[in-house]
C-alpha cells in the first residue's frame, strides 16, 4: 500500500519535480510497448521506462486512419505489469486525452506527432498538469515553445516508424548548432529570435480577424494563448532562450527519438549529445526484441566504447526493414505535425 502523507507542507507538480523526473531517465532507453507482455520484456531488457501506445509507429503508418490515445484498459494493464515508469502518448493539442492519461496514473505524457494531431492551432498548455510532459522538436524554436508551455523533457521528432535515423540526426544537428549560434547574438538579436519563435501563437487570432475583414494584425497586448498576451509569451520564450544560451544546452533533458533501430544508432545519438534514447518500432518490429532491447541499452550506456557497441551488435538477427525518407510523401512525414 502506498504511504499516505499527512503533512500539509508538501508541494506537488512543481517544475523541479517534473524536470527532475525526466533527469532520472538520463542515460537510459525508453521503449514503445503495446501491451503488458511487451512491457515486461522491455523492463527485463533494462528499459528505464516504457511508452504505451495503441500500435507502434511502423504499424500506424501501415494502418493509416486516425491514430489516437491507447485504450485505457491496455494502459492500465501495462501500469500493473511493470514497476518502471509508464509513459503514454496523447495527440498534439488533445487536452482531454492528456487529462485521461493523468487520471489513470501514468508518469509522463508524450504529446506526440506519431498520433494524429487534434488541434491545428495549439499544443497543450502543459503548465496546467501535475504530471510532466515530453514533446518532440525539430529545432530550437520548437523546443523553446514546448518548454515555455511547460514541457519537462524534449526529444527529437526524427521520423517515427521508418527505422531510419537520418531525421533524428538532422534534428539534433539543427538544435545543437542553433544553441551554439546563440553565443554570437546580443540582447536585441535574442529578443528578435524569441519574438520570431513566438509568432505562431498569434495565428488563431490572426485567422479570426482576417475572416472578419480586419486584416491579420495582432497586437502585443492581445491575449492569444493560455491567458497570456503576445508580449508575455515573447518574454517567456526569451527567458527560455537566455537560459539555453547560458547553459549551452536545453534546460530540460533532451532525448533522441524517431527512427532509431540498432545499438549503433543509439550510441550515435548519445555521441551527438543526447541524454538518452526512445526506441519505438525498432525493438518489437525486429526478429529478437529481448536481445535487441538489451543490446540497445548496453550501447546507450557505453556509447563511447565502439568495441563494446560492435560486440553487442553481433547476431541480433534482422533489424526492422526500414524506409527511405525520400520515398515518403510530405503528408506521410509525421515530423511535419505540430509546430
Amino acid at each position: 500500500m502506498p504511504l499516505e502523507l499527512s503533512l500539509e507542507e508538501l508541494r506537488f507538480g512543481t517544475d523541479l519535480l517534473k524536470r527532475g523526473f525526466a533527469k532520472m531517465q538520463k542515460g537510459g532507453v525508453i521503449m514503445d510497448v503495446i501491451n503488458a507482455d511487451q512491457a515486461t520484456i522491455a523492463e527485463e531488457a533494462g528499459a528505464v521506462a516504457v511508452m504505451s501506445l495503441e500500435r507502434v509507429p511502423a504499424d500506424i503508418r501501415e494502418a493509416g486512419g486516425v491514430a489516437r490515445m491507447a485504450d485505457p484498459r491496455r494502459v492500465q494493464e501495462i501500469l500493473d505489469a511493470v514497476t518502471i515508469p509508464v509513459m503514454a502518448k496523447t495527440r498534439i493539442g488533445h487536452v482531454l486525452e492528456a487529462q485521461a492519461l493523468q487520471s489513470l496514473g501514468v508518469d509522463m505524457v508524450d504529446e506526440s506527432e506519431v498520433l494524429t494531431p487534434a488541434d491545428p492551432y495549439f499544443h497543450i498548455d502543459k503548465r496546467d498538469f501535475t504530471i510532466p510532459f515530453v514533446c518532440g522538436a525539430r529545432s530550437l524554436g520548437e523546443a523553446a515553445r514546448r518548454i515555455w508551455e511547460g514541457a519537462a523533457m524534449i526529444r527529437t521528432k526524427g521520423e517515427a516508424g521508418t527505422g531510419n535515423v537520418i531525421e533524428a540526426v538532422r534534428h539534433t544537428h539543427l538544435l545543437n548548432r542553433a544553441i551554439s549560434e546563440l553565443k554570437a547574438l546580443d540582447s536585441e538579436d535574442l529578443r528578435q529570435v524569441a519574438a520570431h519563435y513566438a509568432e505562431g501563437y498569434a495565428r488563431l487570432l490572426g485567422d479570426v480577424r482576417e475572416s472578419q475583414g480586419h486584416g491579420t494584425a495582432v497586437s502585443k497586448d492581445d491575449v492569444v494563448f493560455g491567458g497570456s498576451t503576445v508580449r508575455e509569451i515573447e518574454e517567456g520564450v526569451l527567458e527560455v532562450v537566455l537560459d539555453v544560451r547560458g547553459r549551452q544546452r536545453l534546460p530540460v533533458v533532451n532525448f533522441a527519438a524517431g527512427g532509431l533501430a540498432t545499438p549503433a544508432d543509439a550510441a550515435l545519438m548519445m555521441q551527438m549529445g543526447c541524454d538518452g534514447v526512445f526506441v519505438g518500432s525498432g525493438i518489437f518490429k525486429s526478429d529478437n526484441p529481448a536481445e535487441r532491447g538489451r543490446a540497445i541499452v548496453e550501447a546507450t550506456t557505453h556509447f563511447d566504447d565502439p568495441a563494446l557497441v560492435a560486440k553487442v551488435s553481433e547476431d541480433l538477427g534482422e533489424a526492422m526493414k526500414g524506409l527511405d525518407i525520400t520515398q515518403l510523401a510530405p503528408e506521410e512525414r509525421m515530423q511535419e505535425r505540430g509546430w
Binding site: P2, L3, L5, L7, E9, L10, R11, F12, G13, T14, L16, L17, G20, F21, T83, P85, V86, Q102, G105, V106, D107, M108, T130, I131, P132
Partner: peptide
C-alpha cells in the same frame, strides 16, 4: 526499503 513507496509521478513531492 520499499520501492515507489508513495506511488507514481503524480505523488512525487517536495517537502522541507
Amino acid at each position: 526499503v520499499d520501492r515507489n513507496a508513495y506511488g507514481g509521478q503524480q505523488e512525487s513531492f517536495e517537502a522541507a
